[in-house]
């Protein structure tokens, strides 16, 4: 069942790539102490409490610039988004969503709890969105966020 799904996704991916020259790659990294220094390496030891950095690299392999790039990344299930961790390599606008559909700035996200409205906690974010105005031909850029495994 899952294998079939993967093929389906791959075929969809290939179709998309043929359409245009923008690709996006997702990596998961974790901190590791190497020679007394903390470095981000490929995530291999993931246990409850582990902080994971999701790094998405967008590449424009074409000859034309792309505009209005909107990158969305649902916060994976069992992971809690870490406040203030979403970043991008250049200039971008970052918004967050509590339902994966409506994206807003942190101070405009509210949760109703026992009849009372309160500001949403970062750990309640379900998705992150980055908007980049332009990615030139033969250019690449990246966006990232950190989350902790429950």
């Amino acid at each position: 069942m899952r294998k079939g799904l993967l093929y389906l996704c791959l075929s969809v991916l290939l179709t998309s790539v043929m359409h245009a020259e923008i690709s996006i790659t997702s990596e998961s990294l974790q901190e590791k102490r190497i020679n007394k220094q903390l470095k981000w390496v490929k995530a291999t030891k993931v246990i409850p409490g582990t902080k994971i950095r999701y790094l998405n690299t967008v590449s424009n392999t074409g000859e034309q610039a792309a505009e209005d790039l909107v990158i969305t990344n649902p916060v994976p299930k069992h992971m809690q988004y870490l406040e203030g961790s979403a970043k991008c390599a250049g200039a971008c606008t970052i918004t967050y969503s509590l339902d994966g559909k409506v994206f807003k700035a942190p101070d405009k996200l509210f949760v109703t709890e026992m009849g009372k409205k309160r500001k949403a906690r970062a750990s309640e974010y379900k998705a992150v969105k980055w908007v980049i105005e332009r990615l030139g031909a033969k250019q690449r850029s990246s966006v990232q966020f950190d989350a902790v495994l429950e």
Partner: peptide, 15 residues
């Protein structure tokens, strides 16, 4: 043993 899946999407304009 739980699998933690992640993916991102990008939409953009060209011409």
């Amino acid at each position: 043993g739980t699998e933690i899946s992640n993916f991102a999407t990008v939409s953009y304009q060209m011409d």
